[in-house]
């Protein structure tokens, strides 16, 4: 589904938090419909970059700009970025007391049909009849909550989904199930920025970038990026 059109264009982004620079002159582009892996070890700045792209509080860049579908979104609040078709699945998703899963999945796309809700939960191996009425709260295991987060992003049908370590903490879904879900999203026309520290997860990517110590050290074909990542990790 890649079109060659640049959907996300991060240009020279630098981010300082609590007096420490954690992103240095980041340049990154994600094409429409592509799976773009962002490889890096823990602490390399992958999640910080995701938060900066999404517009999270305290992650506003000191320099550089972020373009989405050709529009400078650097000063847009999160919800306006989301309404343009950008969203993020957190590595450790928040929990919501009293908010049913069905309502949670509907928030991102109020016009979603019942069939699409079921499809989203089935895509992450959760039984819709069981889970739709349950609350997105502490009664869910970490793995269940993570799968619901992926289902919520899938249900939203964004133009670009940033998935932050989608395979971490998943109890039942296998590694290949996650890969299939990501590929399914891409087939539906959604570009995916796949953040991972696992080299094998990046195997499904069209392209990949390698991050180290707050800097992107290379971007290229996924196989090449995986080789570089492996070599640097030793």
């Amino acid at each position: 589904m890649r079109s060659g059109e640049v959907l996300l264009d991060v240009q020279g982004v630098t981010l300082t938090r609590e007096g420490r620079t954690i992103l240095y002159d980041i340049n990154l582009s994600v094409l429409a419909g592509e799976i773009h892996a962002l490889l890096g070890v823990n602490g390399s700045g992958k999640s910080s970059l995701a938060y900066a792209i999404m517009g999270c509080e305290d992650y506003r860049p000191d320099a550089g700009r972020i373009l989405f579908a050709g529009r400078d979104i650097s000063d847009l609040p999160m919800h306006e970025r989301a309404r343009l078709g950008l969203t993020l699945a957190w590595q450790e998703p928040a929990r919501f007391e009293g908010l049913p899963v069905g309502d949670y999945l509907t928030l991102g796309r109020p016009t979603i049909s019942r069939e699409e809700l079921w499809e989203a939960l089935n895509a992450v191996a959760l039984d819709p009849a069981t889970y739709l009425p349950r609350a997105v709260d502490r009664t869910l295991s970490g793995g269940e909550r993570k799968r619901i987060e992926l289902a919520a992003v899938y249900a939203m049908r964004p133009r670009l989904a940033i998935l932050d370590e989608p395979d971490s903490g998943i109890d039942v879904l296998s590694f290949s199930d996650i890969q299939q879900l990501v590929q399914r999203m891409a087939r539906s026309g959604c570009a995916v920025l796949l953040i991972t520290h696992r080299n094998d997860m990046a195997a499904i990517a069209d392209r990949a970038s390698v991050m180290n110590a707050g800097t992107i050290i290379m971007t290229g074909a996924a196989d090449e990026a995986r080789r570089v990542y492996t070599a640097r990790r030793g």
């Binding site: 999404m54 999160m78 919800h79 929990r95 939203m156």
Partner: peptide, 12 residues
């Protein structure tokens, strides 16, 4: 985090 999760779905 709860707030930003919902804002990332498009809610003001």
């Amino acid at each position: 985090k709860e707030l930003e999760t919902l804002m990332a779905r498009g809610l003001d």
